[in-house]
Design a protein around this nucleic acid. Structure first.
Lengths: 139, 139
DNA sequence: TAATATTTTGCAACACTGTTGCGCTCTTAA
DNA sequence: TTAAGAGCGCAACAGTGTTGCAAAATATTA
């Protein structure tokens, strides 16, 4: 993580996001945690907080495919960094794992969301596949 | 749906739920709609509303495996009737389909949630698999 | 460099969903 | 018929997400 700021700025440039200090901070928090985080959890990483700024920053990240959103049923949307080569397309979808014990939400990027043969008339746009259970740390 | 009340009462008895008039009404609404509904949508079916009563009724239904919950990322939890032979176990999990256009949420009971080989150390408890796209009515 | 335009941020307020306490009402059981 | 228990309605509240607006920061132009 030595040159993380540099990495972050490269990504910002690549995805056409203006690298403000706030954005760099939020990017850093997401990359250090390496797990899907809620807005509230991100908020907790700051001394002085501003929900709306974080919220809008996350929206910018989302609009530019720097992060993806996960709905794991906890009541709060989770945000996780996309891979470098992610284009937020169907092939980038993967399974997420929510631990019932610690509440952590892991991106299982090695497990792509399986292709499903939908009934006649249904067309596929997107998918949200969350498995709940116990994670390795909580066994 | 002719003898639906009767059907409903049978189910209540089977699942040890006392058949109050409120519960019968909410059961009827869910069975007539045949789609996953949010608390708010159920509320809309009544002239006079009481969120908390519906909420608690749904909790009773859930605790006794009469309904299952779906988190489709709309912000509101969706509720849908279980099948007759449902025991709310792993084998009863199926895929849900959220239409981006009309917002309807369909239970695709013919599409079970596929088995996933989780990485070492992760254990499976439950799953929520929602596909978003366009439904047959909105094509 | 200075002035102007644009974008971002902080503050405040609000909307929506879910949840709980409490007392009244209804049902069940003695 | 009465007492106990369960269910319901009202009100209030908590958590999460969202927006309007003005100040601050940044970029652009002269």
């Amino acid at each position: 993580m030595a040159n993380m700021n540099h990495e972050g700025e490269q990504k910002f440039e690549k995805k056409n996001i203006r690298p403000t200090s706030m954005r760099k901070l939020i990017y850093r928090i997401l990359s250090e945690k390496d797990q899907a985080m809620s807005l509230y959890e991100i908020e907790q990483q700051f001394d002085q907080v501003e929900r709306s700024t974080i919220f809008r920053t996350l929206r910018v990240f989302q609009d530019n495919c720097l992060i993806h959103l996960i709905y794991d049923g906890t009541g709060a949307v989770k945000y996780a960094l996309c891979d470098d080569d992610c284009s937020c397309g169907i092939n980038d979808l993967h399974i997420h794992f929510l631990c019932s014990s610690c509440g952590n939400n892991y991106c299982l990027k090695e497990l792509p969301v399986p292709y499903m043969d939908l009934p006649e008339g249904y067309t596929f746009e997107n998918a949200n596949f969350v498995i709940r259970g116990i994670c390795p740390d909580c066994q």
